[in-house]
Structures are given as C-alpha cells and as structure tokens.
Design a protein around this nucleic acid. Structure first.
Lengths: 169, 169
DNA sequence: GGCGGCTTCTTGAAACTTGAACAAGCGACG
DNA sequence: CGTCGCTTGTTCAAGTTTCAAGAAGCCGCC
C-alpha cells in the first residue's frame, strides 16, 4: 500500500496544511476531552470514560453486559474495566453478577442508583456536548465530521470483520 | 446565550444524526489516541503528551521554554508538566535551567539526546499519523476537518484575548 | 476422560494524572 | 521599606491507567 519505503526517500513530512490541520485536531480534541472530563467530574463525580460505561449499561437489554462486551463497547481493556467497575461498584452505581451460562463470566449491572445518577447528570452532559460542538457547527460540517470520523475509526478498527489476518501481526 | 433554561423545557437531547456523529467522534478519537500512544510508547518509550513536549521544545528559540509556556503550549497543567519533565529529565532528554530574570522561573531545555530521540522517532510518528488520518481523507475532508477543529478549539479556549471577565467567575 | 490451547476476568506494581496546598519570588502601591 | 495580591513551579496524596502475570473455566479433539 505504501508507494515507497519511508527510509529510502526520507520521511514524508506533513505539508504545512497538513500540519496545520493536525495541530488543530490535537488542540481541539484535547480541549474538548478535558472540558467534558471536568464537567462530568464536577457534576457526576466520575471521569468521562466511567460515564460512558454507565451509558453503555443503560442501553443494554437488562441494563447488564458481560465485562468483555462492555470493554469493547467502551474501547478499553478488560483490565481497565475491572478497575473501573470496582470503583463504580463502590459508588453503588454498578453491581456484578455471575453469568450462569459461563462460570468465568461476569455481568456488570447498572443499579437503580446508577440509573438515577444518569438521569440527574445526562442533561448537563448533553448540554455541554451541544454547546461545545453542535451549536458551533453548520449542518454540513456536522455531516462532514461524522463521515470523517467514521473513516478514521474504520481504519483503526482493532478487530471486526476478520478482514485482516491477525496471525500475521 | 441560551434560548431557554434546559430544566424548563426538558433537556434538548441529541437528534439521531447528532448522536451518530458524536459516537463516531468518540470512537475515532479514542482509537486514534490509543493508536498513537502505543506507537510512541513502543518506538520512543514515552506517551504522546511527552513526545509533544519534546516537539514543543525543539521548535522553541534556544530549544528552551519556561515551564508555564510549555504547559500552555501542550495544554496541560503546570503540575502535570512538573512530573513529566522530571521523568524526561531522568531519561536525559530534557534539562532544567534557572531563569536569570525571574528567580522563580525554570527553563525546560531539550538536550542533545532529546534532539536525537526526536530525530530517530519523528519519521515513524509522522508515518503513523499520515497512515491513520491523512492517507484516508480527501483534500476537501482534510480542509473541512481543519476548519471544524479550529471552531471547536476556539469555543473552548481557556483564556486568550481577555474577552471574558475572570473576576466574574 | 483428559490434555492443550483459548477466553474470561482479576490482580499487583509501576507509571501517569489530578487537585489542593505550598514555598518562594515578583511587583505595585501606600 | 512593607505588605498584600498575584505568579511560578513543586509536592503530596488520591485516583486512574497500563502492563504483565495469573487463576479459573470453556472447548475440541484424541
């Protein structure tokens, strides 16, 4: 897929425009992430990733998901999830349950308290996202952003579709 | 600036399209960040943020910057920078120097070894960015992305321009 | 049955980040 | 001068993330 080995012809540096775009990207994404992280830490007492876990559970069938599924949904490692759920459990927002069908498995279950936290904090969070992002972009820009992000995500998909050959990595 | 208080008319949830865009955004940005973080951790032995610090220093006048300036450039807190520089110092990539003009001040200075690390790892990093982002986007999309990110960043600017009134916060 | 390879989830230690609190120096204004 | 308010950079403790290692159960195959 590469036209030529980088090392042979010198690295292909970013052009000025690319560099500009890249810096804008880094700048904006870190600012936005920090912003939302603080907003949630302040209003909900947890970081953005943890909030995402609760949302994931809230949308799942019986407000429960296997650990691995939840981890994949949130794009974090199982290890990280383990620690995170331990913390959320301490808060009373999530509970663990054994999986009857697979004795290795655990369900993470959103408790009523967890639902309540979401109910209370979701509006503020949505407002923050809206204000930081959607209120500032034209419909065309929103559409473009969606498409761009889909392309980028697709190129980085860790698994999915068996399209590539894991055993060659 | 708000049309109506959220609490009065119910929160303005995201539309389906907005939700779709937002998820794509989260998905793509976390995948990309993870990807680059691992790439750099593997090839350069440091996380992306630390790499950014070295780059910042490399571009500064005498390869040095005051701690606060560097922190602002990298959009991190002074505290975090303090830790980071301590670590980079241990690696021999950065050195601290007193500021003669202000006895409180410290310069972070990129060492020759630091320059060397950059020289050695920058090509790989650029390649990773290119492959994950620019190689997949059309010129129009690149342009659009740049504009969008600028808008978003502008809306979150923590300081700048004295346009708002700090004493009212 | 039972062995080997795989998946599931957890653990522990080290690295990194956060936020509050702090020592030290600056600078202006009386 | 002196002192009050502010900035600079660090430190500490608590919280989070990573990575490597490991206990336990599943599954297929002989």
């Amino acid at each position: 897929m590469n036209k030529a080995p980088d090392s042979a012809a010198g690295p292909r540096w970013l052009t000025d425009e690319e560099q500009h775009v890249w810096r804008a990207y880094l700048h904006a994404t870190t600012l936005l992430e920090d912003h939302l992280d603080r907003q949630l830490q302040r209003d909900a007492g947890m970081p953005h990733v943890y909030y995402g876990l609760l949302v994931g559970l809230a949308e799942a069938p019986r407000r429960r998901l296997r650990m691995t599924e939840l981890a994949m949904q949130a794009k974090i490692t199982r290890s990280r999830l383990s620690h995170a759920v331990a913390r959320l459990e301490k808060n009373g927002w999530v509970r663990r349950e054994d999986c009857p069908a697979d004795k290795r498995g655990q369900f993470a279950v959103l408790t009523d308290e967890g639902v309540e936290v979401l109910r209370r904090t979701a509006p503020g969070h949505v407002a923050a996202v809206r204000q930081a992002l959607f209120d500032r972009l034209s419909p065309e820009q929103q559409k473009a952003l969606g498409e761009i992000m889909e392309i980028v995500a697709e190129g980085l998909q860790p698994k999915e579709a068996g399209a590539d050959l894991p055993w060659l990595r």
